[in-house]
Structures are given as C-alpha cells and as structure tokens.
C-alpha cells in the first residue's frame, strides 16, 4: 500500500506518471513530492512506487 495525498491505496508497481494520469490534472500546474523529496518532472515516468511510499501531488490554483 502507498499513501497518495494522505489516502491509502494500492499502487505498488505504478509510476508517478501513472498516478498523475489517473488524477486527470494538468501536469504544468503541479509539484510532486515522494517521501518529502521533490520528484523532478523528467523523473515522473521512471519513478516507481513501492510499499509504504508517501506521495504528495500538489495541484496549484490561480490567483495572487
């Protein structure tokens, strides 16, 4: 099991890219942290999740 934005789910073997695609969000407006470390955009499809991983997909909204 892994934690994606605080929710436990089965995601073993999936990549960060897979998770983002499932969320149906604009990749230009996100930052992703895996176990509190930033995942560079170029590494989304090569980063595979393993048991116990904590993934935060931060989706920014406009306004400032």
């Amino acid at each position: 099991m892994v934690f994606v934005n605080g929710k436990e789910q089965t995601a073993n073997g999936k990549t960060v890219e897979d998770i983002i695609n499932e969320m149906n969000i604009d990749k230009r407006t996100i930052a992703v942290e895996l176990n509190e470390e930033i995942v560079s955009k170029v590494d989304y499809d090569s980063t595979t999740l393993k048991d116990g991983d904590v993934l935060e997909v931060v989706s920014f909204v406009g306004g400032g």
């Binding site: 604009d26 230009r28 407006t29 996100i30 930052a31 560079s40 955009k41 920014f60 909204v61 406009g62």
Partner: peptide, 18 residues
C-alpha cells in the same frame, strides 16, 4: 512564490526544490 498563474507557481516551486 507569489505569482498569479498556477503554472508559474508550479514552475518556481519545482525549480527551487529541484
């Protein structure tokens, strides 16, 4: 980060952390 557009916010956050 104090931008207006979501993609600009994401850009600078990713750049600083990376």
């Amino acid at each position: 980060e104090a931008f207006d557009k979501a993609e600009c916010k994401a850009m600078v956050v990713n750049a600083v952390l990376t």
